[in-house]
Nucleic acid binder design. Structure first.
Length: 118
DNA sequence: TACTTGACCGTAT
DNA sequence: CATACGGCCAAGT
């Protein structure tokens, strides 16, 4: 019997939960999200899930960037503009399509800076 | 079934 | 700083 729960479905729900847990004004990389979701090495799956996720979920997808702090969308694209706009709206500094390392979650210890003491 | 694609990542040159 | 390469793996053709 099939209850509809496949490894892919499970992974997807974990990724969604992890992204949803990102605090406002804080950013993380696809790899960090994947690792935190218990899926090390599956950054591409994170990207895929975000791309497929319906807007009705209201996910803070704009808080997820590439490991070098750059926005994943090509410069000049609709998504790129949208993401940078949303980040700035939260007080995140975006310069030349990238977020400063100081604002990036790794600067003060991943878990402490990203998900706080609790 | 085989091959290609992609909102990626880390290491090496 | 830019390229190259291997790894990753779901979904599309």
């Amino acid at each position: 019997m099939d209850d509809g729960v496949t490894p892919t479905t499970d992974a997807r729900s974990r990724i969604v939960a992890t992204v949803r847990a990102l605090p406002r004004g804080q950013v993380a990389s696809y790899g960090q999200v994947a690792a935190r979701a218990g899926l090390p090495g599956r950054a591409r799956l994170v990207a895929r899930v975000l791309a497929e996720a319906p807007a009705s979920l209201r996910l803070p997808w704009h808080r997820v960037l590439r490991s070098d702090g750059r926005i994943a969308f090509p410069p000049g694209s609709r998504g790129h503009a949208e993401q940078s706009r949303r980040l700035r709206a939260e007080g995140v500094k975006v310069a030349d399509g990238r977020v400063a390392a100081a604002d990036f979650a790794g600067a003060q210890g991943l878990d402490a800076a990203l998900w706080g003491p609790g």
